[in-house]
Structure formats: C-alpha cells, structure tokens
Amino acid sequence: MSSDQPLVLGIETSCDETGVGIVRGTTLLADAVASSVDEHARFGGVVPEVASRAHLQAMVPTLERALATAGVRAADVDAVAVTAGPGLAGALLVGVAAAKAYALALGKPLYGINHLAAHVAVDLLEHGPLDEPCVALLVSGGHSSLLMVPRVGGEDVVELGATVDDAAGEAYDKVARLLGLPFPGGPPIDRLAAEGDPDAIAFPRAMREDGFAFSFSGLKTAVARWVEARRRAGEPVPIADVAASFQEAVADVLTAKAIRAAADQGVEHLIIGGGVAANSRLRALAQQRCDAAGIRLRVPRPGLCTDNGAMVAALGAQLVAHGATPSALDLPADSALPVTDVLV
C-alpha cells in the first residue's frame, strides 16, 4: 500500500442510494450508484423497507460495476470504508454487513465512518487537498448542519448548528408536494424557480440572524398557508413565483448563516455538501456572498453532492493515510450517529 495514496473502496447505504466508490488517495477511480428513488416517488418520501430491499438487491452488481470501472480486482484494495450512520437503520445495516463481509473475506481493514463527514471529504476528489480549516454547510433531505472542520478528512468535527425541525431538502419535498410537483422536490422546484420572481412573495427567514441552527418547518407552513389562501379565493397559484420565492428564502438563510459562521470561526474556506448543494440558486448565492466576504467557496459537482460511495471512500482514504485505527468487526450501524463521531 502506498501509505499516503491508499486504494480504498467505500460503501454507502444510509438512504435510498446504493453507492460503491473507489478512490486512490484523493483521485476518484469509480463512483457506481444504484438509486431506488423511483420506487419511493409514489409514496412522497423514502420508505425505509423499500430502500432496504433495494440495497440488498443492488449491492453485488454495484460493487462489481465499481471494481470494473476502476479496473481493479477486489483483492487489490487497501481498505474498506462504510457509512455507519447517521441514516435509516435498516438501510445502513445492509451496507455495514456488506463491508464487513468484504473486509473479512479478503483480510482488509474496515473503517465505519460518518455520512456527514463524508459529504465534506468528497470535496477533496473535486478540488484536491485543503490544508486549512474550513466551515462546512451540509444540506440534504435528511440533514442541515453547519460544521467547523479543522482538517477535511480528519477525525475532529465540531457542530456549530443543525436544523431544529425539518431538513432543507425535506422542506423542498413538502413544498413540491403542495405544488403538485414530483418527489424528490429539489430538481423540479429549481427548474420552476428559474421562471419565477424570487421577490414575489416575502416568505419568512426563520432565525436568520441568530446562532447557527436552522428551522424550515415554519417556512414550509407559510408556503402552504399562502397557497391555500389563493386557492380558497379562487385565484390561480403562480407556482413559478412560489417556487422562486421559497427557494430564495432557503438559499438566503443557508448562505447568510454559513458566511457568518466562517467569519465567526475566522476561516477562509467554506465547503457546501449534501444533495441540496446541487441546487442552482444555493450555489449561485453562496458564490456571490463568498466573493463579497473574501471567503473561498468549494462545492463539489452535483453528482458528488448527492449520496454516493466515492465520498465514503474519500474519507476512508484520509483516515487510512493518517494512520487511524480500523473499526472492529462488531461495528454497529447507528442511525443517530453524532456528527462528531467521524470514525466509529
């Protein structure tokens, strides 16, 4: 093994994506993902049992696809990393069991890692090593957090704040449903918003100026009330304006707090990760505000922002390179794993 450029296979099954990624150090070799999102669409959200069944079915084919794409044999990898949490318990368990089987069959070290820390570390694959501390904004269907990260890929992470109710992506899904748009709500709202006026409706920006926690539940309800009032009055609902104004409220709060957190921590770098980081308005507003504040912004390309195995491998490779202690074979899946536990 080249100790600073280890070949690491990463497995991710915390939600509805079965991901297997392979990296060498910070170089991406393969990123195979099988998604069960279409099976969940009619339920308006991810159904844990449906996701778990899909993970079992997809695991070996996805693993084989990743190895073939990377052009490596199973026995070539130096280590196996897997998302140990947070996420859906039954879904996590499929990936954790798969990773243990791989490690045990081939005598490889196993690293059970934190999904949220992996969303930050994946940026190393896109933008290369970062030798300075940063603030990370993680936004997805299940999480919305601001983190202080002394070293990307390191074992220390400090949580500055998280959502007190809905995750940002969850608010997107609920607003999409209200507007008659498909699940997941992010992409259709983003598309519609491009045709609407972001200043048409002044939706609330909860806790914009206080602390680093988020709240999106009130925003979702405010959108519902506004739309219901229109419908009751027999007036048409300008859904592009609603989408644009809602999206503006979300992007405004997320970026305002992230910039303030970076200033507060005295860091010059901001990383944004998670599925919502694929949102065009969030990316544009973050860039604009970072430029104004003199902060350097790093956002991976959309395909690396959503859940995948490459991000798990990316974090695993950093842990291996820095001599972290591997996990035990009785590694548990922890649906509520705190973000401060980077390695289990």
Binding site: S52, R53, H55, L56, M59, V60, L63, E64, A74, A75, G90, L93, V94, A97, A98, K100, A101, Y102, L104, A105, L106
Partner: peptide, 13 residues
Amino acid sequence: RVGLVTAAVFAAT
C-alpha cells in the same frame, strides 16, 4: 438481509 448480503458479498469478493 444481514445474512444474505454478507453471504453474497463474501462470495463475490
């Protein structure tokens, strides 16, 4: 599922 994914991945590798 734990048993089946363990068996499948163990054998595949």
